[in-house]
């Protein structure tokens, strides 16, 4: 965690090919995520960002290629080993994906109850700590259906943090949030990264938050179905020559020739 400041790759994706039956979503995908970095998987809607995330967190077996977690091949490991590796992951789903029939506190407690041998009092202490880390200290006894979208996301984040994961995955963290809440979530992600020393992978197309927090990334293209640019969102905005990337970063329609500078 905070002490593992090795400067190597936490996660490496090689020659990844994702397909639903005949339909190829992405192919020849390769990138690596440095330890302690905040890595962005960018691209327009429908380019397969979330599918790539699913392959990384173990929800979708890739058609080809490898996903290396701490230099260990995730998909070629057997089921038991894979779930063991998976416990290093914390995943925040797009709408929080809280279990609707449990209170927020029970949601956070479940992974601890399932995967640790801690007693109830210790679990309670940890649950309260995680909830206050995301600013939800007072909402532990509420049901997910009583929460606003932003609170649901923060509760989902607290659950993702339950097992002190080394790698955090975020699927569209700021989608559907107002700018202030979204900014707060960005700050929270930065604070947690620094505090926990975790590596963060974010799937998003929200430009402002990408520019603020990410220090590396990959840009996926829907047409060629592969990565067309690597680098931090800021770098891509300032230096990338690929027309699709430029259009995306400048919020223009691809192919429009006027070179108006935005942001």
């Amino acid at each position: 965690m905070a002490q593992d400041q090795k400067d190597d790759d936490r996660l490496r994706v090689d020659g990844l090919r994702l397909a639903f039956g005949e339909r190829v979503i992405q192919r020849d995908l390769g990138f690596s995520v440095r330890n302690g970095s905040i890595f962005a998987v960018m691209g327009g809607s429908g380019c397969g960002k979330s599918t790539v995330l699913k392959a990384m967190v173990g929800l979708l077996r890739p058609a080809a290629g490898t996903v290396l977690v701490d230099d260990e091949d995730y998909w070629s490991a057997d089921d038991a080993r894979r779930s063991e590796i998976g416990r290093r992951f914390g995943v925040l789903f797009q709408n929080g994906a809280l279990w609707s029939s449990m209170t927020v506190a029970e949601n956070v407690a479940l992974p601890l109850q399932m995967f640790t041998s801690l007693d109830a009092a210790s679990i309670d202490t940890l649950v309260r700590l995680k909830l206050s880390l995301v600013g939800m200290g007072a909402a532990g006894q509420r049901m997910p259906s009583e929460l606003s979208g932003g609170m649901r996301k923060r509760a989902g984040l607290a659950r993702a943090l339950a097992l002190d994961p080394g790698i955090l995955f975020f699927d569209e963290p700021s989608a559907g949030l107002d700018p202030i809440t979204s900014k707060r979530l960005d700050d929270l992600i930065l604070e947690l990264r620094d505090g926990l020393g975790a590596t963060v992978v974010i799937v998003s197309h929200e430009l402002p938050s990408l520019f603020t927090i990410c220090d590396d990334g990959v840009f996926l293209d829907a047409e060629t179905r592969t990565a067309i640019a690597h680098g931090s969102p800021r770098d891509l905005r300032d230096h990338c020559d690929h027309p699709t990337v430029r259009a995306f970063m400048a919020r223009e329609r691809p192919g429009s020739t006027d070179q108006k500078e935005k942001a």
Partner: peptide
């Protein structure tokens, strides 16, 4: 600090 900022005791 993060936990304290928002860490109002659970009601």
């Amino acid at each position: 600090t993060l936990a304290a900022e928002s860490g109002a005791a659970a009601a």
